[in-house]
Design a protein around this nucleic acid. Structure first.
Length: 418
RNA sequence: GUGGAUGUAGCUCAGUUUGGUUAGAGUGCCAGGUUGUGGCCCUGGAGGUCGUGGGUUCGAGCCCCAUCAUCCACCCCA
């Protein structure tokens, strides 16, 4: 128990941390290129924020939140997703008064959901994400999607599939709900127990149900896409034109619903195919009503979240993980007390010159020092003993070529730098 | 939250059928073979409360119960 991380959490050990850093680096580079700046928000928020934004009836809010009372009897919640906190910060920081659109990104943001863990689904997970406020045009939807794809591609991931859908605005959704409800009403008895509940709360979800009898019941049901209001329809058409202009391939998938209430119009997923199955690495959409819902001025918004654990899983499964740089460029092996003293000085000089270097701190034999150097992948090893010390030289061994040469101590750093 | 599978050395796994002395292998780790040199080879060493707790039994890694964890499928989503 004591030596076991809590259920659904994970350590990122030194052997893996490089992959995370690489993904974070790519996120920063691409976002910078697209004109986004970083935002950092608290790991927990007032519970009410998520109830209002994500939505009271969603699974996330109803049964998956880490909610507790702090010592001041305030109900706070570890954030289950990234958008709500950023929207709150946008309002609290009065950023709506600045130039819009405002484009923001966040990196390695910890999120928490109390779920039964399995591969690619943890209780603490991490997201990279972006949010744009004040851009209503579909060109922004296309840019956000293109950015997501660019990120995933730069992480070396192949076999990608982009699915898009429009779930309309509250107006057309309300009308569609009525149509769907009317259609399903006579068939409620045929639905699975889950869907009987969904019928009252959110009939859209029934479309996703895998139960055979529900699939049968929804045959011939009206589709959302066929009942968008003129404005939403135009927006969706434009999005597709922009995507085509950008050369982005996409598939329409009316089953993408997104389980968070704030979504409007465009919703999308980036799915990666792997030998062990398909995985959604990125999901997002437009949320034109969110800022207003939280008490701010009517401001359109759009964004996505990208699951880092999933991204790295796919990267690994596809053999696309980046090559990890060697720990040391030079490892110094010494023999004897005097040489060791000199070795410590040498390592310090090497580091001062920006060369990654170290020497044996375990007081081991020369042979063991070499073994260790080899295991760390050091391409070069320096040997320093009394003999070299007296002659003012070091031996420099190229571990890959298994070739060794002597170099004057004074010229070593200059030699290594070129 | 529902259903199923699995927990033995750092890692991958034998051993459980049919309970029986001191629980094994490969790999990894440490050391020696070479008191000045890595990889290959040889030798040796360390490392296990057999997930945890209880029960049955003269005796449990093996049988029974509970519990925890992991994995898979749902649900949901990143």
């Amino acid at each position: 128990m004591l030596t076991q991380a809590p259920k659904g959490t994970q350590d990122i050990l030194p052997e893996d941390s490089y992959f995370w850093q690489a993904a974070e680096q790519i996120m920063r580079e691409v976002c910078d290129l697209f004109g986004y700046r970083e935002v950092r928000t608290p790991m927990f928020e007032h519970t009410e924020l998520f109830q209002r934004s994500v939505g009271d009836t969603t699974d996330v809010v109803q049964k998956e939140m880490y909610t507790f009372l702090d010592k001041g009897a305030r109900s706070v919640t570890l954030k289950p997703e990234g958008t709500a906190g950023v929207a709150r910060a946008f309002l609290e920081g009065k950023l709506f008064a600045g130039p819009l659109p405002l484009k923001m990104y966040y990196v390695n943001c910890p999120c928490f959901r109390y779920e039964k863990p399995q591969a690619g689904r943890l209780r603490e997970f991490h997201q990279n994400g972006i949010e744009v406020f004040g851009a209503k045009d579909a060109s922004c939807d296309a840019e956000v999607i293109a950015l997501a794809l660019e990120l995933v591609k730069r992480c070396g991931i192949k076999d990608l599939c982009l699915s898009i859908n429009s779930i309309g605005c509250p107006d057309c959704r309300k009308k569609y709900f009525e149509l769907l409800t009317e259609f399903l009403e006579p068939k409620v008895d045929q639905l699975c127990p889950d869907c009987k509940g969904r019928f009252a709360r959110n009939p859209l979800r029934i479309l996703d149900c895998k139960e055979e009898k529900c699939q049968h019941a929804i045959e011939g049901a009206p589709s959302m896409l066929a009942h968008l209001c003129p404005d939403c329809q135009a927006h969706f058409d434009q999005l597709q034109q922009y995507l085509s202009a950008l050369g982005v391939e996409y598939a329409l998938d009316s089953r993408i619903v997104r389980g968070l209430d704030y979504y409007t119009k465009t919703v999308f997923e980036v799915i990666a195919r792997t030998p062990s199955g398909n995985l959604t690495v990125c999901g997002g959409g437009r949320y034109d009503g969110l800022v207003e819902e939280l008490g701010g001025p009517s401001t359109p918004g759009i964004g996505f979240g990208m699951g880092l654990e999933r991204l790295l899983m796919v990267q690994k499964a596809q053999g696309a993980a980046p090559e990890v740089p060697c720990l040391y460029e030079v490892f110094v092996c010494t023999l004897g007390a005097q040489a060791r003293l000199e070795g410590v000085k040498l390592v310090s000089e090497l580091r001062g010159a920006g060369i990654k270097a170290d020497l044996d701190h375990a007081a081991r034999s020369l042979k063991a020092q070499f073994k260790y150097a080899d295991k760390t992948g050091a391409p070069r090893v320096i040997v320093l003993a009394d003999d070299e010390l007296q002659r003012g030289v070091v031996k420099l061994r190229d571990m890959r070529e298994s070739a060794e040469r002597e170099i004057a101590r004074d010229e070593l750093i200059q030699f290594l730098k070129k």
